[in-house]
Design a protein around this nucleic acid. Structure first.
Lengths: 223, 223
DNA sequence: ACCTGAACACCGTTCAAGT
DNA sequence: ACCTGAACACCGTTCAAGT
């Protein structure tokens, strides 16, 4: 209702790590992992490719910062008040949704285990373990198992997205793989053939959370 | 004791997919992932880089074939007579050892979930589930969880190896990361700080198998 | 049918030169 | 201090030309 005064548009032309990372995320989201090059990024920011190196050490740092930004946003959105088990499930499903929305995050997370995004996830998954009654000595293994599982699925999911540029949807992709599974040698691959139809019809998110529950059940069993 | 006759060295000069994959594995093992280029491979095989494309579609296929070869060898070495749980543990530790010996396998496995090596692992891990008493409807999720976990760890392990060219050993690397963890903000990272010393002192293989047991316990609990 | 190796179309990164 | 953009040192892949 109020007529806003002509804003004296603050110039944001100056390069900064934030602007660079933001532009990188934009390119990754809209055009995919392969599209992020320093040349494309420089064009997007209307600068020279060398300028980026003034603010960012190299491409690894750029990708790590981009993944860190996405994950940090997801983790801060998780309510703290929930019980420990719900809290861990919330972290896991938050991470899943982030990777679903930004498949390149899945690729990046599996590239450097010591990067900030991983440490954040490790903390968020590990902290509730004490309240869950897991003995001190078992918490490190338990948190590592959860994080490894999450990263494994993240990697597979990202690989799928890397294959499908945009056209095919995931269910068509799964149907193709399932079809291939049914044609495997019956003597060598009885199990794979048997579950091929389940591959075709399953829901990724549900299956991911089923795995988290499996691990949580295992953790509870040890306790 | 017996004096072997002068062997009439069979000429194996002709290129073939096997020879190419064998040479690729050799380069990957001795010089690391980055060293495998078509130029290096061609030099190793004393041919032109274009010749390789007559036998192999592209680099993805080459890497998949290399990983497939390593994994197939590991899986056939596993005794069938063991109980279902021991069988799954044997597959997991076999895969771990293969990735430990050839870290590039870890990278490759996480790149294409539909590749032959993954299907082999999926089969080897899924087949014993029936004998374990897991209901038909739960076997797909259980096998997927085990494979995702394995791939997650494989990726992390490979990333570590990618970082350390050759000099530093893994324990020094873990000590460095652990040291960084102890310097994190106490309010935001209480858990990570608490387990930092465990990171430094833990055994990767033991922790990996602890995770497998955790998942197997979870699977047993559901049953 | 299979091999050769120059050429093409890219990369990430560096660095002298500018402002 | 920060930016420019050509240049460097690579890649994977293609393809005309050979045998």
């Amino acid at each position: 209702m109020a007529i806003r005064p002509q804003r004296t548009e603050r110039r944001t032309d100056a390069l900064s790590k934030e602007r660079i990372v933001g532009a990188a995320i934009e390119i990754l989201d809209t055009d995919g992992e392969k599209a992020l090059t320093f040349r494309a990024l420089a064009a997007h920011l209307e600068t020279g490719s060398g300028a980026i190196y003034w603010h960012v050490a190299n491409k690894d740092e750029l990708l790590a910062a981009a993944a860190d930004g996405v994950i940090a946003r997801v983790l801060t959105a998780i309510p703290e008040e929930a019980g420990p088990r719900e809290s861990i499930r919330a972290v896991a499903s938050g991470a899943f949704d982030a990777i679903d929305a930004h498949p390149w995050v899945g690729t990046q997370l599996t590239r450097e285990p010591w990067q900030s995004a991983i440490v954040q996830i490790f903390e968020a998954v590990g902290r509730p373990l004490r309240a869950l009654g897991v003995p001190e000595g078992a918490q490190f293994d338990a948190a590592s198992a959860l994080v490894s599982y999450l990263l494994g699925l993240a990697g597979q999911y990202a690989a799928g997205a890397r294959l499908l540029p945009r056209e095919t949807d995931r269910s068509a992709f799964l149907a193709t793989v399932a079809e291939r599974w049914t044609q495997l040698d019956a003597a060598r691959y009885p199990f794979v053939r048997r579950v091929a139809t389940q591959l075709r019809d399953h829901d990724d998110r549900e299956q991911f959370l089923a795995g988290v529950d499996l691990i949580l059940d295992g953790i509870a069993a040890v306790r």
